[in-house]
Design a protein around this nucleic acid. Structure first.
Length: 108
DNA sequence: AAATTGACGGTTA
DNA sequence: GTAACCGCCAATT
């Protein structure tokens, strides 16, 4: 199970997401060099150990929809200052942040 | 080895 | 602007 190396990259990026901002799985996947690895990132998050303190609550899908089975994610984001639409989706248009805006990765 | 599922994305209708 | 379909990759059964 060495593939977790990829998940590690995801964790590293997610860890750098600033408060009050959000990122999409596709954006992270693209950053890792694979535009269609969105699902892989999602799966990695589901397996993401809480010990890593990953702010996975700042990670949402392309539609700004929060993770199913994890309703408190919205509460966490709300605590970060992120606004939500009536449909329960995050205003990614306003809170999305690019990895270019994140601190430099000194892993590669 | 094959089939099914899943914290998804993008395109077409 | 919303709804539905297909496509992608990996892990699990």
């Amino acid at each position: 199970m060495e593939q977790e190396n990829y998940a590690q990259r995801v964790y590293d990026v997610v860890k750098k997401i600033p408060s009050g901002k959000v990122m999409t799985y596709g954006q992270i996947a693209l950053y890792l060099g694979n535009p269609k690895y969105a699902r892989r990132v999602a799966r990695a998050m589901s397996h993401a150990p809480a010990a890593l303190r990953l702010p996975c609550h700042r990670v949402v899908n392309a539609g700004g929809g929060t993770a199913p089975g994890w309703p408190e994610q919205r509460t966490l984001l709300a605590g970060e200052g992120v606004a939500f639409k009536e449909n329960g989706c995050v205003d990614i248009r306003k809170y999305i942040v690019k990895m270019e805006d994140l601190p430099p990765n000194m892993n590669e």
